[in-house]
Amino acid sequence: MNWQLWLAQIRAVVRLEMRKTFLSRRGLWVYLLAAAPVLLFFGRTVDVMRSREWFDTSVAPHAVSRAALESIQPGANLEDVEARLGEPYSRRVFQSRRHSQTWLSYTDGSNTYTFRFSDGTLEGVSTRDRANFQDDALIYATFFQFFYLRLLIFFGCVGIFVNLFRGEMMNKSLHFYLLAPVRREVLVAGKFVAGLIAASVIFCTSTALQLWMFSIPFHATIESLHAANYIGVTALACLGYGSVFLAAGLIAVNPLLPAAIVLLWEAANLFLPSALKKISIIFYLQSLCPVLAPPEKDMNPLLALLVNSAEPTPAALAILGLLAVTALVLTWSAFRARKLEINYSSD
């Protein structure tokens, strides 16, 4: 066994790949994928801070008793409501040719109530709580499991890992690797490590920034954020999805197909018998998420297709299971790589 040589070779492969994965213009969109949620939570933070300040200075002094607010019934008259509750802290009127719409906003000191009147009669009420950490933590958990793991990291890994082999076949430069005195298994390992470094650096940074943004208004501690868990799950997601898409890029001329199949397989996870469940990535990832997210009530049907909650497994088992799936897929990739031929003309 020649571990020293192999390690040096893996380092050399990683060196070569780094430039491609981190700096290429074609990989720019992965950064966009990772930056989008950070921006989202930045927006949220700005919004929370501003509305909090506004609430304290201009809304809270107008507080009305909660009982009075709850007593208003649909169909009530605009003048009656104003007479009972007093001057609202905000009033908006929308006048069209035939109809007028009016929104009156009140508060009980912590929540806000907005009454919507159409031509002077009450049509609906919407209430909003003030932002609080529990609610937001739950929203983050939902966001993380249903959107970040399943869509963003998923597609990011498709981009990064499929490119490792298929991208170089497209570019007609894979043969340079195959003509070096490197075992194909070592090559697969090196490429995988390179992809893993790129993916986990990009996405773990994104997770950390999201959590940081998210925590600012609540002065939350790192423990209460479960930051370590979230970042760990992010890295494991890159590992798991990475191995699958490395294999896909190695064998499939059109990696769109395997990606779609994996996407559907992971979505169908909920309905699978428990033995099959374990051959998936999302099952283990979901078991490791620190806060269990409730399935969203009014989820978009397109998204609902992709979403399910798997019943959890103990953490240690989940990590082992994920590593086992990854190892299996990588071993198979290495095996396939030994039979890899150069055939650039095929697509």
């Binding site: 927006g43 990696p255 969203e296 397109l302």
Partner: peptide
């Protein structure tokens, strides 16, 4: 220029749009 990737993006515009839209709705209320 890569067909497979282009097909994926056409699908992705809708899926990612749906996902990100819901995420914005949930987070920004």
């Amino acid at each position: 220029k890569w067909r497979a990737a282009a097909g994926a993006v056409i699908l992705g515009v809708f899926f990612l749009g749906a996902g990100f839209g819901s995420a914005i709705n949930a987070v920004m209320r």
